[in-house]
């Protein structure tokens, strides 16, 4: 029998997280390269409609893993049920999207099964019969090809945007859906989560901005934010920032771009003094044009930039503002 790859799609409060299609696409690519069988699963309480949605894709089978206590999400509940499921339905590779929810429970699940999770992978290599997963290291300055040892299953989580969700192939006919129910004994779930909420004011919707000028640590001091603001104004764009700037209170949290802030895809993203840590990149790599100004020629932001300026932003931005004003006059 062929080995199995299992993709566990993510649902939150009964809705499929669209990033899951990227993981399905990753699973399909791996299944084709390895000649393994691809199955999918969704876990939750009353999530059969999601299982049916996933069954439209080219997968051999979809498991609808049900347990009343999986809603609301807790790491204890998910690790308990998925361990029980995987002991009944062994898979060699278990793939999931690298979301905040998955990273909350997957290390626990892997440890409970005496195995490991290769987290935040951006791709894989399969040559010479060896399967390697590529991860970013040192905040994106290096990539590493990582191998897996042990009896498995090997858990792998893929970073947002590593595969094309729209490339997830549909199946000829709907895949069979198999319902598997579990009971979570009392005492297993120890956390009591409350309702999910947004901080009251989200004044700025950066997702609609055509032009974004974004500042990072390279701006050095709060008073220098003004320079970036002037540049944004000259371009008619919005001002945004990487996380450390908002952590310092130099700009409000609702101007933060990245995994914990907003995800944007403007026509122009102009990055000032942003090194390009992974958590930032995932929030802006969809921009159609990226210009980066950074004094460090090895800053990872340059890897994804269309135009790169290696230099001191305090030298370059003032004349840039003047030239833009002239061009617009």
């Amino acid at each position: 029998m062929a080995d199995t790859i299992l993709v566990i799609v993510e649902q939150r409060e009964g809705k499929l997280n669209r990033t899951s299609w990227e993981t399905i696409a990753a699973g399909q690519a791996l299944a084709a390269d390895l000649g393994w069988s691809l199955e999918a699963a969704v876990a939750g309480a009353n999530v059969s409609s999601i299982a049916n949605e996933v069954a439209q894709k080219k997968v051999a089978r979809v498991y609808d893993i049900e347990a009343a206590k999986l809603e609301p999400y807790t790491p204890d509940g998910f690790a308990h049920v998925l361990k029980a499921f995987l002991e009944q339905h062994p898979a060699k590779l278990v793939l999931m999207p690298h979301t905040y929810q998955v990273r909350d429970f997957v290390p626990k699940l892997a440890t409970a099964m005496k195995t490991t999770a290769i987290t935040d992978a951006v791709g894989y290599r399969y040559d010479g019969g060896k399967l390697l997963f590529t991860r970013q290291m040192f905040q994106g300055k290096f990539s590493a090809d990582v191998s897996f040892a042990g009896l498995g299953p090997c858990f792998v989580t893929f970073q947002n945007g590593s595969f094309r969700g729209d490339k997830a192939e549909a199946g000829g006919a709907a895949a069979p859906v198999e319902k598997v129910s579990f009971d979570i004994p009392d005492g297993v779930v120890r956390n009591h989560p409350q309702e999910i909420f947004k901080e009251a004011k989200q004044a700025v919707d950066l997702t609609q901005a055509e032009i974004i000028v974004s500042v990072g640590r390279g701006i050095k001091e709060q008073k220098n934010i003004e320079l970036a603001k002037q540049l944004a104004e000259a371009l008619g764009g919005e001002l945004a920032a990487s996380r450390p700037i908002c952590d310092n209170g130099w700009l409000p949290m609702d101007r933060q771009i990245g995994s914990s802030g907003q995800t944007v895809a403007p026509k122009l993203y102009l990055a000032l003094g942003i090194s390009g840590a992974i958590q930032h990149i995932v929030g802006m790599k969809g921009a159609r044009n990226i210009i980066a100004i950074n004094k460090d020629s090895e800053a990872p932001i340059f890897e994804i930039s269309d135009y790169a300026v290696v230099g001191n932003l305090f030298d370059i931005v003032p004349p840039l503002i003047e030239e833009i004003k002239k061009a617009k006059a």
Partner: peptide, 26 residues
């Protein structure tokens, strides 16, 4: 259970144009 087989500078996904010169020219 996981091992780094090789570490390297990431392959560029974009064809980046570097712009240089004195600040005014940039």
């Amino acid at each position: 259970l996981q091992k780094i087989e090789k570490m390297y500078i990431p392959e560029k996904s974009k064809n980046t144009q570097f712009i240089d010169g004195p600040p005014g020219e940039i």
